[in-house]
Design a protein around this nucleic acid. Structure first.
Lengths: 248, 248
DNA sequence: CAGGGTCTGTACGTTGGCGCGCATATCGCA
DNA sequence: TGCGATATGCGCGCCAACGTACAGACCCTG
């Protein structure tokens, strides 16, 4: 856990022009986020938007039979609650904290006001939304065409980029739920990755030993999303050394 | 093929306030759209935005090995080129005409100007984009969890809503490409649907005999998307009687 | 330090979808 | 009217992922 908390740990907030950020700052409230905590229920009202800093949040679709499928991941690079400025107010998916940490929240109304001012805030939020669309798109593609092992790699990399550390906290069980596959399927995939020396798995703690190797074993989907985030969100320090600050 | 062409056959154009539409009208150019025609290549420049009226366009992701997966469908209810106002200018996916027909196009620059005026044009485009996100999301979910047969049903219904006729022009081969599955898989699924009396298939022409039955055999994904389109785009005549005009 | 809970590893038969090959049916056109 | 092209139907073996069941490893707590 980080010594200090700072809204600038969130890329979107950090990328705002100074005066925009200064205006927002007083309305940002630091909140702890605990695993499994549900920020938004499917179709439910959204009172706040969230800017994660050290937490990771899953966007999940919950099927009628109760099983789930993650459609996107949001961490320090993003925001939760895009439907507030897209105009729909809600979405048919659930936002659930996947990895413990912190974030800042802000009243929905306020964000909507900021958005409707236009300018850089709006531009940034829309570009982020497009990046998110790409992530959802690649989830669809990956679900269709790639093996469980490849999907595990992709998901680990997405997680890695959002914790900025070579370690993830996620049991095989929860990873399976996220991907919408069997726990055993994840076990064998993880076993192979461990065999290959790219990760080490131990009771909910995944250490990444060889990130490059992991990227090689992943399908193209991860790269597409990563490049698109970098293209759309200038200066975003994705996939670089964890210690690199957001602004150099 | 319709006797007359009218930009108001496109929902988004029809839903605009009169003065907004009047301003746009002179810049709309009627264009025929032939099957397999590529409107945008992945990552390619977008000179125009398109408002389909009688055509259907697929958003496809083309994988490195050349195989494809459709991530969304756009017809008379939508617009092609959302990344122009989302700020990214391009997307990593391809837009290819799936069903012949017509549409109106407009210079990208002009749409961007209209969007940045804010107001109803922007609001409408953003709400449509959110609906599109839902469609992509459900594609991801469906790819993960549902059988080929269910996906065929879903896709047929999506197509039906966009031709406003109880008949689709689509070979099993092309449907297979769209869904990213084998042609034979589609054949057996279509065979069962035919057996069940909900459709009749004949050399690229699919007649829907029992739409309700088709909806019952489809998975929840279609309904989720349909309801979300209706919620986000007020007055959109989805899934109703083909003859019903957009405005009553 | 014992015992219960959690997490991970492994084995089995089952199944949905894949890849391939080929047979049949239908259409357009020469 | 006959031929090639296209579209559909079907049968095979194969494999990845599924469902189920259970065993071992590890951790925390009492």
């Amino acid at each position: 856990m980080p010594r200090t908390h700072d809204p600038l740990q969130n890329y979107l907030l950090a990328a705002l022009p100074e005066d925009d950020f200064a205006r927002l700052r007083p309305n940002l409230e630091l909140v702890p986020m605990s695993p499994k905590q549900v920020l938004y229920e499917s179709g439910g009202r959204m009172r706040h938007v969230y800017f994660p800093t050290t937490s990771i949040v899953s966007l999940l679709y919950v099927m009628e039979n109760g099983s789930t499928a993650e459609i996107a991941v949001v961490g320090w690079e993003g925001i939760l609650g895009i439907s507030l400025f897209m105009g729909g107010e809600t979405t048919p998916s659930r936002a659930a904290v996947q990895s413990a940490g912190h974030g800042y929240r802000m009243k929905s109304k306020l964000l909507q006001q900021e958005f409707s001012r236009g300018g850089k805030v709006m531009q940034l939020l829309l570009r982020y939304t497009q990046a998110l669309i790409t992530q959802i798109t690649q989830t669809a593609v990956c679900n269709r065409h790639h093996s469980v092992e490849q999907q595990v790699c992709r998901r680990l990399l997405l997680g890695l980029d959002r914790v900025r550390a070579p370690e993830l906290t996620m049991t095989q069980e929860s990873l399976a739920h996220i991907l919408g596959v069997r726990r055993e399927g994840v076990t064998v995939a993880a076993g192979r990755l461990q065999q290959a020396g790219v990760i080490r798995y131990s009771r909910g703690r995944i250490s990444i030993l060889d990130r490059e190797g992991l990227e090689k074993l992943a399908c193209e989907c991860y790269g597409v999303v990563q490049r698109e985030f970098e293209r759309l969100l200038p200066g975003i320090p994705l996939g670089r050394d964890p210690r690199t600050p957001a602004h150099d």
